[in-house]
Nucleic acid binder design. Structure first.
Lengths: 188, 188
DNA sequence: AAACAAAACTAACGATTGTTAGTTAGATAT
DNA sequence: ATATCTAACTAACAATCGTTAGTTTTGTTT
């Protein structure tokens, strides 16, 4: 199977897309980073779009699986939110290259892949929103507009990859503890 | 002066950049949206880069001014943070198109403009970080890692433009109140 | 009415883009 | 040894890109 070589291409492309964005990276750029010529890439992938789609779906599916698992747990809304934060941090650390592309370049997906990723994103947000609403109705969470809570937490988690590198030596478990504390209990 | 026509171009480009990103928008796209031919744009601007640079610097300077003003105030760190949040919301609402480009396409700036924007961004973060550190040392803020607090608040503010449209009829002042509450006091 | 400047136009340039066709080198299987 | 298959190569394509040169239209000033 060419699957290992294909994965190599995707990983290298992932790094370049993160640095410069999908449209600013040419097939010749990817090929050069792979030490081959652009035309040779087509022995392993069908085109630039396939690289983008595979790349993004790999990590999007990771998020979807984990969220579905959390949503169907039998625990309190607050415990679920804590889990969501931790899972997000884990995925960000493990797929640190892919995440930038998921966040910035999903717009450049076409056709079915675009539809699929948008749907997954919506479902993810719906799940999260429902957990928050549940928490409010159980009086575990302040009766604030759910949308404000949802996007406060979600934007922080989604852009975590941007400063994850700067976090330097901060241990992942410390990071989890701190972020859970800040996002749930505030800063005062 | 051609300054009004130039501003028209920048505003239209701003809308297109927001929707598709800098690299996916051609000069011919901008021209078409302006009801003219691409070559005619060059009567008003020197090139695509100038559009991007002017666009981004317009709003970046807004942030810098406001932050400098807040930093030099004589008020408690917590009051300053509240002000920063409110200012961010105001600018996001007033420059809703520009903000997307500032956030996503600043990487595509070149030369002096790039250097300048990066510097402004760093200064802005430094100011914010110092306010937080001050708050911690005055025991107004929990002794958490300042970086976690800084980026939790900042990522939420920076991506506000993404869901600002969905916020629908929510009044700006209500939004300010809710966000200050969530970001400072948490959700429980 | 003549002169002028501003802002639009047409046409074209060199460079780069994603992709295809056809070919060749190297490894594996018969 | 021969045939087969994989994965690399060279060369080229049509399309699109940002930009320039030269020209014409439009509107204002004298």
């Amino acid at each position: 199977m060419n699957s290992t070589r294909k994965q190599e291409i995707i990983n290298i492309a992932s790094r370049l897309f993160k640095e410069r964005g999908y449209n600013a990276v040419s097939m010749r750029d990817i090929a050069q980073a792979m030490d081959m010529k652009a035309a040779s890439l087509y022995n392993h992938i069908s085109g630039k779009q396939e690289i983008l789609a595979t790349l993004i779906l790999e990590v999007a599916e990771e998020f979807t699986e984990k969220m579905n698992s959390i949503a169907s747990e039998t625990s309190t809304p607050l415990q679920k939110i804590k889990k969501v934060i931790e899972v997000h941090i884990d995925i960000t650390v493990n797929f640190s290259e892919h995440i930038a592309t998921l966040n910035n370049d999903w717009i450049h997906l076409e056709g079915v892949s675009l539809k699929r990723v948008v749907k997954m994103r919506e479902d993810y947000e719906d799940n999260f929103r429902n957990i928050i609403k549940q928490g409010i109705s159980e009086k575990q969470i302040k009766p604030q507009h759910p949308e404000v809570i949802l996007f406060s937490i979600l934007s922080t988690l989604r852009t975590l990859y941007l400063w994850n590198e700067k976090r330097g030596k901060m241990d992942v478990n410390v990071l989890k503890k701190d972020m859970v504390s800040v996002l749930i209990n505030g800063i005062v």
